[in-house]
Every structure is written in C-alpha cells, then in structure tokens.
C-alpha cells in the first residue's frame, strides 16, 4: 500500500485566513462572502480591521454555502436562509449532544 504523508490544515479557530483565501477555496464571489458577513454567518476576527481575516473554520461555512447555492440552484437570499437555519440546527444539535453526554 502506497501511503502518502499529507500536509493538512486544521480548520479551527486558532488559524486565520483572508477573504481572498475563502473566495479561492470555496468558489464563492467576494460579494457573496460579504453578504454572509452582513448576515452574521461569518465573523471576522477583528471587524474593525481594514483587511479582514477570518478563523480557518470559516472555510466550512463558505464551502457549505457554495454547495447549497450550486446543488439547490439558490440565489443569495435562499443560500443565506438555508445557512441560517442550518446553523440553528447545529446549535440545537450541540445542546442535544451535551444533554446526551450528561444524561446518557
């Protein structure tokens, strides 16, 4: 078995990336990424900074947004609504996981 040693990036809150990086990785336009920021779905590390940088886990959000846009043929309003609802589901799932861990 040929095993390749792979370099990876952990998509966490400790590493950071630029809006250009998010655009290149996801395939979303900067305009669409800015709409995600305006709607609270992406939060820059320092919102007052001129050049915004984002926690690396933002890649998960932008990739998901691009998939939803393409796979459901959504406009930006539909994409934002779907992402907002999905984030609420994720929050509820986290609470459910916590309760399950506490009470089995």
């Amino acid at each position: 078995m040929n095993v390749q040693i792979a370099e990876w990036t952990l998509l966490n809150g400790q590493n950071a990336c630029s809006i250009t990086y998010l655009r290149d990785v996801s395939g979303l336009s900067e305009e669409e990424i800015n709409e995600l920021i305006e709607n609270g779905l992406l939060t820059p590390i320092d919102s007052k900074a001129m050049a915004k940088i984002f926690p690396m886990h933002s890649i998960v959000t932008v990739s998901s947004a691009r998939r939803l846009r393409d796979d459901f043929e959504l406009d930006s309003h539909g994409m934002i609504l779907a992402l907002t609802l999905m984030q609420r589901i994720d929050d509820l799932q986290s609470e459910l996981n916590l309760l399950r861990a506490q009470f089995k």
């Binding site: 095993v3 390749q4 792979a6 990876w8 952990l10 998960v60």
Partner: peptide
C-alpha cells in the same frame, strides 16, 4: 485508491475538518 497518513493533533474536536489542499 489513495491512502494518506495524517496526524491528528491534540485538541482536534468532533466534526472538525482538516483540509488536505490539492489532494
């Protein structure tokens, strides 16, 4: 089939993603 050896760092969490660029 391609097999990649990746290092799981301490502090990795459930549902966290690792990106293997260009793989």
């Amino acid at each position: 089939p391609h097999t990649f050896r990746i290092t799981i760092p301490k502090g990795a969490q459930e549902a966290q993603r690792m990106r293997l660029a260009g793989k």
